Computed example of a mutant assay.
Amino acid sequence: MAEQRDNIYAHPVPEPTAFRFDDRVAQVFPDMIRRSVPGYSTIIAMTGLLAGRFATPGSRLYDLGCSLGASTLAMRQNVQHGDCRIVGVDNSAAMLERCRGVIDTDSHDVPVDLVCSNLQDVPVTDASVVVLNFTLQFIAREERDAVIQHIYHGLRPGGIMVLSEKVTFEDPHLDALNIDLHHDFKRANGYSDLEIAQKRDALDGFLRRETLQQHRKRCHDAGFGSCDVWFQCFNFASLIALK
């Protein structure tokens, strides 16, 4: 499946519309996320290594908000136990349709189940690894505590949750600086000021950032014994929480 270049916001739109993970986004998603999220390829690759370390025999691994299956593939290619099973969940039918095509071309044999659903409605059970790579930020804030608690209860002792998010900073000067640096990153990857502005308007109110302190507190309140950042670049960070 040939990768297409993201030019969704390359031309002026008369009225901004809310961002949606529809077929148009699914077609360009690999290019979009690589050019928009600093450190994305590192986060995906290390998600695979973490899965290889923490997956336990007979357990399930969950990719919640799996989009086109990058984290699912990274886990599948690193899990050493043939009796594990990976569950990929996404509420976008367009993303999952393309994800199935990606999974079908992979030669590894860990079974993968793809579920089209809101992740809040999917049971997490007997899990050794749960991944939310840039997923929680699209869930209503009032539902996030319950999501993390549900994941904690569904993990085996010794299991991990990987949580990657676009974050905000309590210090307004640092927040403004990191937003500017992110925009510089996008410009360096070929996005115009028009594209940056229109994408920002489309995500306004849809992607809701929180501070790292809020994420840590939510994980500790859910019961995780340890939780902290393992990777950060500008206002994008990934945390590991250990049960």
Rank of each mutant, 00 (worst) to 15 (best):
L64G: 07
T42Y: 02
V102S: 07
Y62F: 12
G69P: 13
D113R: 05
I43M: 14
S117R: 11
R76S: 09
L50D: 00
G88E: 03
P111L: 12
L73P: 11
A94R: 06
L114Y: 03
H108Y: 02
I43Q: 02
A94G: 03
R100Q: 12
D121Y: 04
A55I: 12
S67D: 07
M95C: 06
G88P: 00
C116W: 00
T105G: 12
D126A: 12
G65S: 05
H81N: 10
S67A: 15
Q77T: 06
M95L: 04
L64S: 06
C66D: 09
V112K: 09
Q80S: 15
L73Y: 04
E97H: 15
V89D: 00
F54H: 15
D83E: 09
P123S: 11
A94Q: 04
V122H: 09
S107L: 10
P123R: 09
T125P: 00
E97C: 15
V124M: 07
Y62G: 08
L49V: 06
C84N: 11
L68G: 11
S107M: 07
C116Y: 00
I103M: 12
V112G: 01
P57I: 00
I44M: 10
Q77K: 13
G82K: 15
A51C: 08
C66Q: 08
V89A: 05
L73W: 02
M46K: 12
R76Q: 13
C84Y: 06
F54N: 11
D63A: 13
T47A: 00
A93Q: 09
V102E: 09
A51Q: 02
D63N: 11
A55S: 15
T72N: 06
L96D: 05
T125S: 11
V124I: 15
M75D: 01
V79E: 01
D113C: 05
L50V: 05
V89M: 02
L50A: 09
C66P: 06
R98P: 12
D90G: 14
L96A: 09
T125Q: 13
T72V: 13
I103E: 01
A45F: 03
L64C: 10
T56S: 14
D121Q: 14
G88F: 06
S59D: 01
N118M: 06
L64A: 11
I86N: 09
A74M: 10
D83A: 05
R53W: 05
E97Y: 14
G101V: 06
A94I: 03
S67V: 07
A45Q: 08
N91R: 12
L49A: 09
V110G: 04
A51F: 04
S92N: 06
G58C: 01
V115H: 01
G52P: 10
S117C: 04
I103R: 05
N91H: 12
V102M: 10
S71V: 05
I44E: 01
M95T: 02
D106M: 02
D90Q: 10
G48D: 01
S107T: 15
D126L: 10
